[in-house]
């Protein structure tokens, strides 16, 4: 079996300018933030971002000028408010926004993961959403003659999710305890033409095979695996660690204007060689403070 282990830099190097890139996670939960920072560091451009419930991941990439299209059901910084970089770009008309509801966003990944061309239902009927998104169309059912909304499958050029563990062959697992809103990642991962998975820890084959029921993506669905501890930080990551709201608050303040955000990027992305350097700058104390206790 060939090893699928890659460095973060190698993995993100697979992305080409103009690619469609799906990012896993939900609001302030388990977004692949280490990967997003590396996309910024490698100055990717004109990406078509796809998510189902997006947040600081989309805001970072839009604020850094990496995106041309944002397709998702939500971009916000949870309790802090609107995503300011995203808002600025939208109001300046510098990105195209393709709207979704939660169900239609999940449907595009579910269809992509399942090999269906589209999923038809009554989702989004009566809303102005379909007009914003070429992936959404009205179809007449041949069975009852009634109109339905069809959501076309998504096959992102690159799908990136963050998970808990993987073996070197690319079998990816989540711990027994994981928050279901993050499980859309399974569809996201399966839908990608290229699928990059960052994990908290690369583990032995034995550790994976001890709990085969925890495997969410088998190795043939995965292009490469990257060890990125605290790879969702400052988002929370199931029962491993919670979010760092102080960090998010500082991010939110920095994103108030373009100059402040440019300084943020210099300090926290461009000024740091890699994810390790980022973690070192965050510091042991801060990481210990968010890490879940009590697991034996």
């Amino acid at each position: 079996m060939t090893s699928k282990v890659a460095t973060l830099s190698e993995a993100i190097g697979l992305i080409k300018d103009g690619d469609s890139v799906a990012l896993g996670g939900h609001t302030l939960r388990r977004h692949p933030m280490a990967a997003a920072a590396e996309i910024v560091r490698q100055r990717k451009r004109d990406l078509h971002l796809i998510g189902w419930n997006s947040g600081i991941d989309f805001d970072l990439l839009v604020g850094a000028g990496c995106a041309r299209i944002a397709e998702t059901s939500y971009v916000g910084i949870s309790g802090f408010g609107l995503a300011r970089n995203f808002r600025r770009a939208a109001e300046a008309g510098s990105i195209e926004i393709r709207e979704h509801s939660e169900i239609s966003a999940l449907d595009m990944f579910r269809a992509g993961a399942s090999g269906m061309a589209f999923i038809a239902s009554s989702v989004l009927m009566g809303t102005d959403v379909p007009a914003t998104n070429p992936r959404i169309a009205t179809v007449i059912s041949p069975f009852d003659g009634k109109p339905y909304t069809a959501v076309q499958a998504a096959h992102p050029d690159v799908a990136i999710i963050h998970a808990h563990s993987a073996d070197r062959h690319g079998n990816v697992q989540l711990d027994a305890l994981h928050w279901p809103d993050n499980d859309a990642d399974v569809f996201v991962g399966w839908a990608g033409k290229t699928t990059i998975v960052t994990v908290e820890q690369l583990v032995s084959d034995e550790a994976i095979r001890e709990h085969p029921d925890f495997t969410i993506l088998p190795r043939d669905a995965v292009t490469c695996v990257v060890e990125a501890p605290y790879g969702a930080y400052p988002c929370c990551c199931d029962d491993r660690y919670t979010y760092d709201l102080d960090f998010v608050g500082d991010y939110y303040a920095a994103s108030a204007d373009p100059a402040g955000f440019a300084r943020y990027l210099d300090e926290w992305v461009f000024g740091l060689a890699d994810h390790d350097a980022f973690l070192q700058k965050v510091g042991v104390d801060r990481l210990l403070a968010i890490t879940t206790k009590g697991a034996l």
């Binding site: 059901s73 109001e91 509801s101 939660e102 989004l124 959403v129």
Partner: peptide, 20 residues
């Protein structure tokens, strides 16, 4: 029309609640 005066968070699940 055109770029929004204020960009809000998005439809989220509210659209699904309101439909179903």
């Amino acid at each position: 029309e055109g770029p929004p005066k204020v960009r809000l968070t998005g439809p989220i699940a509210q659209a699904d609640h309101a439909v179903f």
